[in-house]
Design a protein around this nucleic acid. Structure first.
Lengths: 251, 251
DNA sequence: TAAATAGTGTCTTTTAGACATTATCAT
DNA sequence: ATGATAATGTCTAAAAGACACTATTTA
């Protein structure tokens, strides 16, 4: 960050700051939006909010909003605030995806949005979403054919792309499941986030060899029929782990 | 992007926009900074600018500055503008790294910076840098022990980390070299950006099998002594290529 | 011919893919 | 016993690591 040529008329930084007027220059409208993903009804879903204020009133949008300079200590804090407002929970995974800016994104003027992506298990959000009324989970493919507000379709695609890419070399899907979960559960989560089928043996080897899960000793109580699956819980290590080869693509 | 509760007092979006005052809410100061990397004297170097205006006058900083709402059509345009101002060239590689925001980054107030990373061959920038006087190339390790302006050390580390990570699965180092270049040149570039030694055979196999380079038919004119190296030029395909395995780490 | 640098051959290691087989549960 | 789902065994394939070897240049 440097600034416009305002040069040497001040004797000290304190003197400069004393006269500095933050409204001297036009600033972009700055906001934070969050693409919140989860699994529901065996589908990858995203949480959208129906706008009840102008502009773009009535359209579905990613949860988000302006940075609150009084309350937000960071961009991540802004993201967490907007996420909690709609879901009622703190997401176990939240990561910044990218920022988008331009004069035509928002009719109010030049605007800049920092896009985050969040993963969480859906079930703890359902009671709160019921209450807020303006939010609901949408299957991703349905969300992508809606007329979303602003350029939110582009943002959603960017977040979905990041999700897919990272699923190929991390254990991110762990964060859309409620623990404890089985390896077949986890494989299904990987397949939905990757949008590709995986070989059972290769998948299990990869996860087991990485040592990211802790065996709970439990097994799935009532599957219907078939052998019960062992239940696991993610270890703290799973948060940072990166594999050195990509999963599931031809490449 | 949604907005603060300002609700239903307007009959249409046009009416809402007509009364909308962009100065009604406090906005973050928004800027774009660029970590510009190249190879010079067989070292990874970064271009820094000495601030001649408050705040942080006299400290070295990443090139960058405020978004100009009149001139900039996008964040990338802002980055390119500031990059060209200091280097005199357009970078063959420019990518967004991350955004940073908070109340204490800048003494003027809550500020938000979008960080970009650029790669370019250093030689074409040298005459222009000579002219602008306030910019110079710094070896990265020296830059990291300077007292940089604002939180630019943190930004620089984030960009360097991105550079290292992507070098492990792309052909990014191609963009710090002047074409044509030899495979030993390219291996050296990879090693400097990765900060790790590479096996010659494995490296050549990887690059050759990927088909990212075009043989110019030339060889290096005057190496000193030793067998001359064949010279290559990157194909357009090298821009997007991603390898499915990581280079150079134990993992 | 010696030194230096470029470039190749080839064996090992790691990890994913394919797919057959065995294990454990409900009915 | 049958069917269903979980879990394992084992062979193959792709690509990186190790490192010895050959090739081409200048002095």
């Amino acid at each position: 960050m440097s600034d416009r040529p305002s040069h040497q008329q001040y004797a000290s930084e304190a003197e400069y700051l004393a006269q500095y007027d933050i409204h001297r220059y036009e600033l972009p409208l700055s906001s934070v939006d969050v693409a919140i993903f989860s699994l529901l009804d065996s589908q990858l879903q995203v949480l959208l909010v129906e706008r009840d204020a102008y502009p773009q009133r009535g359209r579905w949008a990613l949860p988000g909003g302006f940075v609150d300079l009084k309350r937000d200590d960071s961009l991540e804090a802004t993201a967490m605030r907007h996420l909690a407002a709609k879901t009622g929970v703190a997401a176990p995974w939240l990561e910044q995806v990218a920022s988008f800016g331009g004069p035509d994104r928002d009719p109010r003027g030049w605007s800049l949005t920092v896009l985050y992506m969040a993963l969480l298990p859906a079930s703890p959000t359902l009671p709160h979403i019921e209450q807020v009324r303006d939010a609901r989970w949408w299957p991703l493919d349905e969300a992508l054919v809606l007329q979303l507000a602003f350029d939110h379709r582009e943002l959603l695609l960017a977040a979905r792309e990041r999700l897919k890419n990272k699923t190929a070399y991390t254990a991110l899907p762990v964060y859309v499941l409620d623990a404890p979960f089985s390896l077949p559960d986890l494989q299904t989560a990987f397949e939905l986030l990757l949008d590709a089928p995986l070989e059972k043996k290769a998948f299990r080897r990869r996860i087991e060899d990485a040592g990211l899960l802790e065996d709970t000793g439990l097994s799935r109580p009532s599957p219907g029929r078939g052998r019960p699956a062992a239940l696991y819980r993610p270890k703290a290590a799973s948060r940072a782990h990166q594999f050195s080869r990509l999963l599931g693509q031809e490449g």
